[in-house]
Design a binder for these strands. Sequence first.
DNA 1: AATGCTTATGAGAATGAGTTGCAATAAAAG
DNA 2: CTTTTATTGCAACTCATTCTCATAAGCATT
Lengths: 148, 148
Amino acid sequence: MADRKTPAQQQAEEMAASLRAAGVRVTRQRVVLLEVLAEADDHPDAIELHRRAKEVDDSVSLATVYRTLTVLEQQGVVQRHAFEGGGARFETAETAHHDHLIDLETGDVIEFSSEKIERLQAEICAELGYELIHHRLELYCRKRPKKS
Amino acid sequence: MADRKTPAQQQAEEMAASLRAAGVRVTRQRVVLLEVLAEADDHPDAIELHRRAKEVDDSVSLATVYRTLTVLEQQGVVQRHAFEGGGARFETAETAHHDHLIDLETGDVIEFSSEKIERLQAEICAELGYELIHHRLELYCRKRPKKS
DNA sequence: AATGCTTATGAGAATGAGTTGCAATAAAAG
DNA sequence: CTTTTATTGCAACTCATTCTCATAAGCATT
């Protein structure tokens, strides 16, 4: 009877621990949010997260979802993205850095990363006399028709 | 007495001609907006464009600025950008493709372009079975302290 | 330059994502 | 279990943007 917990539950607990370690209160609604976030393998927006959170605990308010997401972002536990059209979307920040490819037809998001591009970005900033703090790279694509 | 017109005026007229050619009505307020856009060398938002337009013709309404910007974007005459924090910002689309470096302290926008990065982006899409339609690359930077 | 068909405009109301003030509530520390 | 202090739910609010609708032009034609 090992691993009684799902990976998502474990991740949620890790995030909670990290918050406590930073002196942030871990409330009932924050735990719910962390669980929802840990289970999500897409990039939901605040309203979708609220919907999912309410399935666990109906009393969680949208305002708290927004406030909590802000806290989690500040703590580096989630990342906020602002893709074209529509509101902010979130994902847990545990995974390594990556950029996003957005399927224009379905809205699906695929993660990718390129060492070369990262390097080139830093070079460009340096040439212009700047230090790169963070960046945003989004590729808006259409699925390529299969060659039959 | 050659070139009585400034380059910005010429550009505004070209854009107007392009609109007329596409069967789009060129109204008094659209002309004003085109002039304002042609003169701008920054990346103003709708409210700033409205402010500048009102200096030329006080009757131009904000709603019309928004409506016109949408039309101009559809016609490929301006480009809309959504940088972090705050509303959409615009620039004329005549210039060649470029990406943006945003100074986090001042909000200044510097344009740059990199053949290598463009190529890498297309490669990444291709590998994932997609066709790149357009992309967004923004570098958020801080000015590097000069080595004295 | 007057006509008529159609689209654009101004003013303000409406929307939608996100935030905030406040009184009630619940973490965490003692 | 009490105190301290941060968090919550709710509703009111902000801010960028869009919409509604009656009026006012474009512009192709007479």
